[in-house]
């Protein structure tokens, strides 16, 4: 199985552990990822806030590169995934947008490649049964809550992934690798997203709400698939010691990958004491 891979700027920066663990786990599961040549930033929330044309144009240019590469594209970052899906949706639904993009990037969008986030790649392309059969170290004793955030699941008509307010897919993956995925009502509460630098006060309030609820649910850690969410949850919580991890890191641990130790070392809040206390460190 071979896919194109769009890491996005965060995964080449402060979220390296998400990049490393996504690539590592895919390699372990027999999925080959080929990074898109000369990909550009998707524009994230600044694109759609300021620019009516470029907010579609920046992701559309990446889709052009992906269509030229001819493979379905895997996008681990929830924000990039959302922007690429938005561009795809807009070009599919509106001829005027399609024409505008043709003028902008000299390319006629064909809609030939699928855009996949990491959760759907693991769940649909690998299957939970295959995952179970490859378990080396089931995460027995680890109690987590799965935090999906906004961008993977909303708007429904754009991402079409899981459920906008009661998603289950990540919980199922966590259960499959032996962790206890607890029920809670904050799966898709907003963390404040891009306000982290400018309205830090707002992000703190939202993040504390999420972390408090995770504790109340009885969790020892939060698991996520979004670098924006993880950044906010780790850096802006008042507690300062409640671990937050990418699901791909825990997949690596469960698959017995020694590299997972390096990924887990890159956190502002060190999750290794928790994993160590449960005998789960490789």
């Amino acid at each position: 199985m071979t896919y194109s891979y769009y890491p996005g700027c965060s995964l080449h920066g402060s979220s390296r552990e998400y990049d490393d663990s996504s690539r590592g786990v895919c390699a372990e599961l027999g999925i080959e990822l080929k990074e898109l040549p000369d990909w550009i930033c998707c524009g994230a929330s600044s694109g759609h806030s300021l620019d009516e044309v470029l907010n579609i144009g920046l992701p559309a240019r990446n889709l052009k590169i992906a269509e030229q590469a001819g493979l379905d594209v895997v996008v681990p970052c929830a924000a990039c995934y959302n922007r690429l899906k938005t561009a795809e949706h807009a070009m599919r639904e509106k001829e005027s947008v399609r024409n505008q993009m043709r003028d902008l990037i000299d390319y006629d969008h064909k809609g030939r490649v699928q855009i996949l986030n990491m959760i759907e790649l693991i769940q649909d392309q690998i299957s939970l049964d295959t995952l179970r059969s490859k378990l080396v170290k089931p995460l027995t004793g680890l109690r987590v809550v799965c935090y999906y955030g906004c961008l993977l699941v909303r708007p429904v008509e754009v991402t079409g992934f899981d459920h906008p307010e009661h998603p289950r897919s990540l919980d199922e993956i966590m259960s499959a690798i032996g962790a206890e995925a607890l029920g809670w009502s904050y799966k898709t509460e907003c963390c404040g997203g891009s306000h982290s630098l400018t309205r830090t006060d707002i992000v703190r309030v939202l993040v504390d709400g999420i972390v408090d609820m995770a504790k109340e649910a009885g969790a020892q850690a939060i698991v996520t698939a979004c670098p924006l969410c993880l950044g906010n949850l780790e850096m802006r919580q008042s507690d300062g010691g409640f671990p937050v991890m990418y699901f791909t890191e825990l997949l690596g641990v469960a698959l017995g990958m020694n590299e997972s130790r390096d990924w887990l070392k890159k956190h502002v809040i060190d999750p290794t004491p928790l994993l160590g206390s449960l005998g789960l460190l490789p």
């Binding site: 700027c9 000369d38 930033c41 994230a44 929330s45 600044s46 694109g47 891009s194």
Partner: peptide, 24 residues
């Protein structure tokens, strides 16, 4: 109001214009 938010978005976009990618 909220000029900082507007300024941040503007800088984000001019960074992309300059390099094609965002540099934190």
């Amino acid at each position: 109001k909220e000029r900082d938010v507007a300024v941040m978005h503007g800088l984000f976009m001019s960074g992309i214009r300059k390099r094609g990618r965002m540099h934190e």
